[in-house]
Simulated scan of single mutants.
Amino acid sequence: MTPDAGHDPLAGRKVLILVSEDWYFCSHRLPVGKALRQAGADVVVVTRIRDHAAPIRAAGLRLRPTQLDRSGVNPLHDRATIAELLRIYREERPDIVHHVALKPTLYGAYCAWRTGVPIVINALGGMGFLFMARSSRARLLRGVVRKLLGLLLNRPNSRTILQNQDDVNLLVEKVGVIPGNLIMIRGSGVDTEKFKPTPPPGGTPVAVCVSRMLHDKGIGELVEAARLLNRKGVGIRVRLVGSTDDNPASIDDAILADWAAEGAVEVAGPSTDIPGEYARAHIAVLPSYREGLPKSLLEAAAAGRPMVATDVPGCREICRDGETGLLVPARSVEPLAAALEKLAADPALRERLGARARAIAVAEFAEEIVVRQTLDLYRNLLAGVPNRTR
């Protein structure tokens, strides 16, 4: 739906976006927030405020703090947080709420139901630790979460954004969500002006993994692959760029320190210059167990770098075997090492795959495409809905 020249359906509407971390909002949702403001909407961002309040406020968005902890799903433990969210929803009276990730979706959708929010949008990336973990506790929680999602996502005023067809199928077949309540918007988009191809650097090929340091990102397998390549004398450097966090799958800092001391991989820690990381690398690698649609690979593609990734939901959306990169089985070491060795030894193949990756990033995953699709969804759902702020 394209707004009329004289009136945008979003003008004068209030949109509340619930996301657990301010840094995540800035990296994944800030362009949507800016576009909403440009359309005349009042945008309220509810998040844990740490180090990224300034760019959110600079975009003209209002901030409301919450203590929502992104890890774990325990409504009894989080009763105070749910009560806090209920108070915010009642005070703000939004026309639309947009919940980002699993826990904000569960708690936010419940609060939206209790407070009568007209339109509820939930955005789920990958199915996350809860749907991949193999522990008995995770299996128990998985059953509870599936029942809650089935209740909350099937409400007539609810729509859920997913990033790949595998996750659409999962929610339909395993959770019982009505297909008409599911919308596929592939990823959060990539800034193709910020991430541009640069000539590959000289010297030993570098494979960079830009990721949170989590076990389920396949970091352990990548380290093992690097050890194997080192023993074989293959000329390649493997570089880990990213931080740990409070995710249950986070890798202990002591383990990262041991890896750094061993020297099979370079442990760089977090970086604020991701375009520079790709400019200084020849290959992007992400051996994750499951994704929604990984922003790090979108950025690598926009930067014109070939990829090595696992043949799992999300990764294979952008890493297309033989076209933009090489796919390997999840939780594998030898195939991962072989793919890295193949790209390290073949500059012409790297150039061909990287050029195609850039073209696909621009044509299918550019930030403006995702922003337009998201705002069009808002506009379509607002048709006939009275403005609550008047």
Rank of each mutant, 00 (worst) to 15 (best):
T2M: 13
T2K: 12
D4K: 10
D4C: 13
P9E: 14
A11G: 15
R13T: 15
V19K: 11
E21R: 07
S27C: 14
K34I: 12
A35P: 08
R37E: 01
G40N: 04
H52Y: 05
L68E: 14
D69V: 09
S71R: 08
D78H: 10
T81K: 12
Y89H: 09
D95F: 03
H98G: 00
H98E: 00
H99Y: 00
V100Q: 02
V100T: 01
V100A: 01
K103C: 01
L106P: 02
T115V: 11
P118K: 15
G125A: 08
G126L: 14
R137P: 09
L141I: 00
R142G: 02
K147G: 10
G150E: 05
R159E: 00
N164T: 04
N169M: 10
N169E: 13
V175R: 09
V175A: 03
I185P: 00
R186F: 14
G187K: 12
S188M: 08
V190I: 06
L214F: 09
E224Q: 12
G235H: 15
R237C: 11
V238C: 12
D245V: 09
W259A: 06
A261F: 08
A261L: 08
A264M: 02
A281G: 00
H282G: 03
V285N: 05
Y289M: 10
E291R: 11
S296F: 10
E299T: 02
A300Y: 00
A302K: 05
A303P: 08
M307R: 05
M307W: 02
I318E: 10
I318N: 13
R331W: 08
E341K: 09
D346R: 06
R350Y: 04
R352A: 04
G354L: 01
R358F: 01
V362E: 11
Q373W: 07
Y378Q: 07
A383V: 10
G384Q: 15
P386V: 14
